[in-house]
Design a protein around this nucleic acid. Sequence first.
DNA 1: GTTTATTGATAGTAATACTATTATAAACGT
DNA 2: ACGTTTATAATAGTATTACTATCAATAAAC
Lengths: 224, 224
Amino acid sequence: MEPYLFRFSANIKTDIFLKDPETSQIGTAIINQSIDLINEIGFEEFNFKKLSARIGTTEATIYRYFENKHKLLLYITSWYWCWVEYQLVLHNTNITDPQVQLKNTIKVLATPTAQHYADVNLQNLFNIICSESCKSYLIKNVDDLNKYGVYFNYKKIVSIISDIIKLINPTYMYPHMLVTTVIEGIHNQKYFAEHLPALTDITEDPEYLINFYYQLIIDTIKKA
Amino acid sequence: MEPYLFRFSANIKTDIFLKDPETSQIGTAIINQSIDLINEIGFEEFNFKKLSARIGTTEATIYRYFENKHKLLLYITSWYWCWVEYQLVLHNTNITDPQVQLKNTIKVLATPTAQHYADVNLQNLFNIICSESCKSYLIKNVDDLNKYGVYFNYKKIVSIISDIIKLINPTYMYPHMLVTTVIEGIHNQKYFAEHLPALTDITEDPEYLINFYYQLIIDTIKKA
DNA sequence: GTTTATTGATAGTAATACTATTATAAACGT
DNA sequence: ACGTTTATAATAGTATTACTATCAATAAAC
């Protein structure tokens, strides 16, 4: 094993983009700026015309990177899951107690771990993950997209966290369900805290959120 | 108290529609047919032109009932929550054990309780609730809409179920969070079972789903 | 120094999300 | 029975969206 930590680089299915945005300045601008713009105006109002105006390029150029705005959203969410995976390695390496691993994991899932990475605003990214990420799979052509492996990064995270749960209770039968319940739950509760407080009990302080879902998992998987 | 059961009628905020669809044949056709059409082609592909062609009317007529397709989705989801409320009364009246009430509630939330009500296909309705209902609030103008009370019916259901939880454990502090976690979780798991099985552990048989979330609530709220 | 790839600039198209207008028919009050 | 309101049909039209196509300019690669 290397004594050095990995350097982060996104590992995203090539079916999502036409041209890899990581290979050019304009490509990285598309990602960074679309995160900020979607955060400002929402995914429905967002389009490539507005994005190109913001970046100082043309619609046609952006279309050479992504087929449509949905594929771009798919790229952004995949990038986020890559980032989460990287953070989990960072936080859980050499941690032997799986309960501590679980707590660290929930923390990573419930808070943006930093302000920026390169030019990506991680706060804005986390915001749009909470409010827009489910739109990447709640669509009519989900089965086709799934065949092409575009949800690989989300599935991988779910698998990694399920394995931690199995370390705590190897006989627990519903780890994937529990993990996706918690992940989507975190996103929902964050959103509700900001916009629909009657649907939650928490404020925007993430502490309660983390404890709630950590305890929920522990209580659920503990053997009877 | 009346010895007869209530007859169901939707109680929906007037800010959602321009003209009450329950007051005309064409209005009820808009609701019934939009449920089926959204189920077939998804909310993104759905529009008033396609809907009007299907029911044999014109776009302009539909626009006299609803400002736009998002308001129609809001109406449909509100109708669904009214229906759930009615089902809960039906199933929980005279049940004294709150744990039984809770179990009944999860059942109502996790399965369409009948094939049809009037001309509403409840199976299709439940399908689109699972895949589209979150789009009624995951939008940029959520705060404005919320001011007009358009999420009233969802909030009411959450409040009703929170009260059941408080009957089981009066000191439990996070009933709303727990309830929305379970409701949205049910929708997600249903959807995952059909489209993204790697994200769940269940099949389309609702039995496991019901038991999973019932047990999750019980384990979570039980005093330590 | 020529090929190759990338972007900019511009134009164009089909579909979407509406709004407006007018004619007609049904329903409603007196 | 008559005039008035109301709902719908039929049609037309507009601004925006979501793309696709073309071609010149430029930069990078060989």
